[in-house]
């Protein structure tokens, strides 16, 4: 693995969504790791911090927003960039995402163009 290899932690309780995101990101050279809920994601970050996180909102055990709050509280603001990827699409959710330190917000359903476009917007591509 080269030093420039980027990692992305895909956090979603849907196996299908994780698989789709993995396929898209791997075409761009990302090493993708997966977590099924916020708690698993937090453990994964403690073990090895990814370069980016693609994060669902509604998940069992620990939801996406609680994970984001815990991540920023434990590791500080800004890094790694977190992009929500959720069926929630009201402005209030986007505002909460911004307030709690997310870098972007993808509303499901998404496709390759939208996903990679958002990664590009936050400087990951």
């Amino acid at each position: 693995m080269s030093d420039s290899t980027k990692t992305c932690l895909v956090v979603d309780d849907s196996r299908v969504v994780r698989k789709v995101a993995r396929r898209i990101l791997e075409t761009q050279g990302f090493i993708v790791r997966e977590a099924e809920d916020g708690q698993q994601a937090l453990l994964a970050c403690r073990a090895a911090m990814p370069d980016s996180v693609l994060l669902d909102w509604n998940m069992p055990v620990m939801n996406g927003l609680d994970f984001l709050k815990a991540l920023r509280s434990e590791f500080g603001p800004g890094q790694p960039p977190v992009m929500f990827c959720t069926t929630e699409n009201d402005i209030s959710f986007i505002e909460q995402a911004i307030e709690n330190g997310a870098q972007e917000f993808i509303m499901k359903p998404f496709d390759e163009e939208i996903l990679l476009g958002k990664f590009s917007q936050v400087g990951l591509l």
Binding site: I94, A97, I98, E104, G117
Partner: peptide, 18 residues
């Protein structure tokens, strides 16, 4: 779909309403 192409989320919140 259109508001997710190129538009940062801050601009979506600031300049659009659902």
């Amino acid at each position: 779909f259109e508001v997710q192409r190129g538009l940062p989320m801050q601009s979506l919140v600031k300049y659009f309403r659902k």
